[in-house]
């Protein structure tokens, strides 16, 4: 396919973009890249204290239960939030230079993935030092990450291109993500919900991804491969649809911005 060749030809641009995004995020801050660790850790501390008192029920590893979910969740939200800005933020080069515009959402999702892999060190440190330990189920980590990557790519294609024409989306996304945080079993257990709510939660793709991460890091059990494969297929479908939307809308970028 033509698109893969195009992206391959512009791989250097993709690389510098990803580097710029990772380095640029904490540029001019004293602690620099340390914020990549501090941010989720502090967030984790807040959630552990508040929700720990409310929901933990004496579970000594509750903070790890949250941690395993919070780190992939952070990847999910930052990638989507940044997608809304990426085309608008690069307005001046879009108006002046030709390059495959697809590079922009792809580099947002890729730089997020790099950050996520680095942050996984936090999860590993927690499970090792708390005595939960590691299991061989970790071999599924790349597979789960791949599904999340493709899912995000699809969302990113749509969000980044639609926001150009419909700026409100940026704010709508903020609200949706805030709601989605509570609609995903991050701070509580799915079983704590009433049965009818549990069924609705099954429609949330992040529920299954979070469950899978928990299976390999926390519960040390086989993730539900059947669900993951369905999720993979749906994510690929979403990315294909998203790509066509992006392709159609990108023609007007230079005029709309």
């Amino acid at each position: 396919m033509n698109i893969f060749k195009k992206i391959y030809n512009y791989r250097e641009l993709l690389k510098t973009n990803v580097k710029k995004e990772i380095r640029g995020r904490y540029k001019n801050s004293i602690l620099g890249i340390m914020w990549s660790f501090l941010n989720p850790l502090l967030q984790l501390a807040v959630y552990s204290i508040i929700f720990g008192a409310l929901l933990a029920g004496g579970d000594k590893t509750y903070h790890i239960y949250i941690c395993v979910a919070l780190i992939p969740w952070t990847y999910f939200t930052t990638a989507i939030t940044q997608s809304a800005f990426t085309v608008i933020g690069n307005a001046d080069i879009i108006k002046k230079v030709y390059f495959p515009r697809e590079i922009l959402p792809i580099s947002v999702v890729t730089s997020g993935a790099v950050n996520f892999v680095i942050s996984t060190i936090i999860i590993l440190a927690f499970v090792i030092f708390s005595g939960i330990g590691l299991s061989w189920y970790l071999v599924f980590y790349p597979f789960i990450l791949l599904i999340q990557f493709i899912l995000l790519l699809g969302i990113s294609f749509i969000v980044s291109s639609v926001t150009v024409y419909f700026r409100d989306l940026e704010h709508i996304i903020g609200v949706i993500l805030m709601a989605a945080f509570y609609a995903t079993p991050i701070v509580y257990k799915l079983e704590q919900l009433p049965a009818n709510l549990q069924i609705i939660m099954q429609l949330n793709p992040m529920t299954h991804l979070i469950n899978a991460y928990r299976d390999i890091f926390y519960y040390h059990q086989m993730p539900n491969m059947q669900i993951l494969c369905i999720l993979l297929a749906l994510s690929i479908l979403l990315t294909v649809i998203g790509y066509f939307i992006f392709k159609k809308l990108q023609k007007g970028f230079a005029e709309e911005l």
Binding site: N9, Y10, E12, L13, K15, T16, K20, K27, D92, I93, K95, K96, V97, F99
Partner: peptide
């Protein structure tokens, strides 16, 4: 277009050329 003021001339050569697909 695409020059980044905080980076050096040398780094900008890399950024700018990569926008042109090198």
């Amino acid at each position: 277009a695409g020059f980044h003021p905080d980076f050096s001339g040398r780094e900008n050569i890399y950024f700018n050329s990569s926008i042109f697909g090198l």
